[in-house]
Design a protein around this nucleic acid. Structure first.
Lengths: 216, 216
DNA sequence: GGTATTATGTAGCGAGCTCTAAAGAATTAA
DNA sequence: TTAATTCTTTAGAGCTCGCTACATAATACC
């Protein structure tokens, strides 16, 4: 059973990739349908809506595409490192890599794409915030694994430590967006990793036990 | 010569404070004139424009108010610390303080207020970006002073090191916005300061010399 | 009181936004 | 060839946005 009806005049995947870059560069609200349609090959509104449903659905697809492509190396680095330290370091290096890729917008889609949107777009905001939180939880779990495998001290607080490295990642996203050079960002990664030994082993950093609870 | 004409029915300073909080919480674009006027005591558009000129002018006044009040302790801490280390630490602590103040929006005005706005509001975006950069330059100058006073090694790179601590501040702003507890943020500050000694004294972190140049 | 001055209240303009209705064009199935 | 299906083109509806025109109300100066 082949495709019936008039064939589409543009490639859906290509159009989605273009849309992702527009969302990434301009944010959900900054990316108007005009600009999106322009970047997607000059398609007209009905074609757009027939193919993607709505601006919000397109954005969610773009987020997923970002995670599958640009975001994947970060998670891969985090999970496949031989030690917790290697994993975190590789994660940060991969983050700088993703945030500074030539030919793509600077910064992190999960920050630039939607942060502090208008109340009408709270759905979109919460969606990417959820993914930022998931990234933090992944770091936390990697640290937890390090504790369970005996690599890290039992009294290390994986949640609080994950907050620190998430802070660095989010900060790198903004710095990259603000135009800081890749070299300077990699130096910042080195700085963050220089904290590893004190953070992991110095006891006075871990007492009292700091839970990464929210809202006090 | 006293005030002629019909007197204003609202207090300008109070209205500005309210507006600052709306901008802080919702961002420049998220804060519609409706919401601003509502928060400013239910004033009508002509009163609004007579008093503040335009939405953008009001925003700039709000930014200045933020810097004068919430932002001042950060710069004060940075400049008045007896050592560079004390200054940076106090800056980070003051940042967490400002980003988590009860009764005020969470996060940093200079990040939440305008980041990745629509192209039409690029002016506003650039304005707060400029202030973020200025904050980074202030850190850089404090480190430079530490070098000149002999507290820090001569081969320390103030620009690159300032990028690291700016990264932490920007990251804290996002984390605070995402609801992370003040305790967890303070722990992240401890982590960042745990990197101080290695960053300042370990030579392999400083070779090759990393300039905080922009765009590669 | 009369007048100039300044603020307020009501109403609405023009622009831009997301999204849709209706008719025509290109393809497959019968 | 005809019908069914699917996309494209053109036009614009409905909404919200920042902002303003105009008449009215409240104050200070003379």
């Amino acid at each position: 059973m082949t495709q019936r009806g008039r064939p589409r005049s543009f490639d859906r995947q290509t159009a989605l990739r273009q849309a992702m870059q527009v969302f990434w560069a301009l944010g959900y609200e900054g990316a108007t349908l005009n600009e999106l349609q322009e970047a997607m090959g000059g398609i007209a509104p009905p074609s757009f809506y027939a193919a993607f449903g709505s601006k919000e659905e397109l954005f969610r697809e773009a987020v997923e595409l970002y995670s599958r492509t640009l975001g994947a190396p970060m998670m891969k680095a985090l999970e496949e490192g031989p030690t917790a330290r290697d994993s975190i370091q590789a994660l940060l290096v991969a983050a700088v890599e993703a945030f500074c890729k030539p030919g793509l917008p600077r910064g992190c889609f999960l920050v630039s794409g939607a942060f502090n949107s208008v109340p009408a777009n709270k759905n979109v905001d919460d969606h990417v915030r959820g993914l930022r939180v998931r990234r933090q939880k992944a770091i936390q779990q990697r640290l937890q694994r390090g504790v369970e495998e005996g690599e890290l001290p039992k009294n290390l607080d994986p949640a609080a430590t994950a907050v620190f490295y998430t802070t660095v990642i989010d900060g790198l996203a903004i710095q990259a967006r603000d135009g800081v050079s890749r070299k300077a960002l990699n130096f910042a990664v080195d700085c963050a990793m220089a904290a590893w030994d004190p953070v992991v082993h110095e006891t006075d950093l871990r007492k009292p036990r700091m839970l990464a609870n929210r809202r006090e």
